[in-house]
Design a protein around this nucleic acid. Structure first.
Lengths: 260, 260
DNA sequence: CTGAACATATTGGTTAGACCATTTCCGCTA
DNA sequence: TAGCGGAAATGGTCTAACCAATATGTTCAG
């Protein structure tokens, strides 16, 4: 029965008034919200498979198109992943920090926000967490950091040092706070940084021998639980990175992205 | 002609082979990507109106369903806003920090992350930006903050102080850095905080007279460009908030969200 | 001439039914 | 036993139509 839906299904007789106030906007949006709640409440956990589109149609009493639109939104939000074929369907996924990072990246490339702004925020955050890192870093953390530093040094010699390696180091430092919120934030910041820099084609000269050596020194300071020294090193390190950004008109002055 | 699409439009005769290698995943995804690029490159700026669904069908050579799925994704990504009715359609919007904040909020309520984690991250960040605030706050910033403080005080007397008011204050402090990246981050953090606290029904006792007075003192310190004092006040303030969170088993120990 | 009621065109929202492409699985054949 | 081939399940897409909301033009009463 096409068309009986959004008007509130006035039925035939007396019930007309009872339903009048509702008439909520989009049906697919209602479905999305319902799913979101189920996921948030743990009724649906990552890995679970939602019923097939055709089943959902029946359960919700809507057409397949509407169900599909809801699934598209959920997919775009990173809440489900969709696989085709038999035994396919919509599977609940945990939205990773990557997902959020993507959103942040998009915002950064589109919003009126300069690379300097981002760098400044980074400095505040990455300097701020250093005391926590110095206090909490485990032997394993430090070992990992050493490995990353060494990889960086050899890559530097080979001329193959990438921005991604620097990002990995800084993220690993952040994760040494053993605070997932902090780790996620640093990760989110490095993603867009990476993207915009690669777009601007300035990835190559971003890290010199000095930078690599500072990474090394930083790890030492952390190992020795020397918060002050760590702070000084990181500060110098980030400041120089910021300087390189500022030098480059493509990424320093204008928006991070290509921009309007 | 139903079904001529995803196979690569084999036409009738000889061209079949030429198109074989493509067959990219989802058509709507291609459209989304194309739109995204147009927006990123500035070919489409906020406020622009996309052609109507029916026009897009013709231009892309696909059905309306497909176009609509693409629009749903773009909408969920916060890139367009859709209005119905004549002169309606899809309008390009700048993804606001709210948009990203929502994503962050979702992540926070879903990820294995405690309220304490979030609070700690908040402390790092909000304490870290204070020097910037003290250095850069304009008269207007300070006037705004005063207003917020007064509103808070009267609300407190009336017993109607909400978490939202506290959030507004902290966000306004952050925006006094005149760095959009920082403002966005603080905003993103307060959203989920708000949500989880309201869920846990502990909104009421979260702010006492002491807290309100600390807001007042903080504004004074900022006005006097007294970074040290501002730091001390904010530190105490956040610490007590953290304490209140920890007291409450509902929101302090378990995940921020209701959780599995 | 002015203003309000009505008609119309534009546009998104939804439905039904169909067909195709991909993937899994089960049974059949060599 | 090993491999192959055909259901069956499932997402992806298409068509044609109608409904609901909105803006604009048009007409008629005052």
């Amino acid at each position: 029965m096409p068309g009986s839906a959004s008007g509130g299904a006035p039925g035939d007789r007396s019930t007309a008034d009872l339903f009048s106030p509702v008439s909520v906007g989009r049906i697919s949006e209602v479905i999305v919200e319902q799913m979101r709640i189920l996921i948030r409440e743990g009724k649906l956990v990552p890995g679970d498979r939602l019923p097939s589109e055709r089943s959902l149609c029946e359960r919700f009493g809507v057409s397949r198109v509407t169900v599909r639109e809801a699934l598209r939104v959920l997919e775009a939000s990173g809440l489900v992943e969709i696989r085709v074929g038999a035994r396919g369907g919509a599977f609940v996924t945990l939205p990773s920090s990557e997902r959020v990072g993507e959103g942040l990246a998009e915002l950064l490339t589109l919003a009126p926000m300069t690379a300097s702004d981002v760098t400044e925020a980074r400095m505040v955050f990455e300097l701020g967490i250093l005391p926590l890192v110095v206090e909490r870093a485990t032997d394993e953390d430090i070992a990992d950091l050493r490995v990353l530093v060494e990889q960086g040094l050899s890559a530097l010699e080979a001329g193959s040092y990438t921005m991604a390696m620097s990002a990995a180091f800084h993220v690993r430092v952040a994760s040494s706070t053993h605070n997932p919120a902090i780790e996620m934030l640093v990760q989110s910041f490095h993603g867009p940084m990476l993207m915009s820099l690669q777009q601007a084609q300035v990835a190559a000269p971003l890290m010199g021998p000095r930078g690599a050596h500072e990474h090394f020194e930083l790890v030492e300071a952390i190992e020795q639980r020397d918060a002050e020294r760590a702070h000084a090193i990181m500060s110098r390190h980030l400041q120089r990175t910021a300087g390189r950004l500022a030098e480059n008109p493509e990424s320093g002055q204008a928006n991070v992205g290509g921009g309007q």
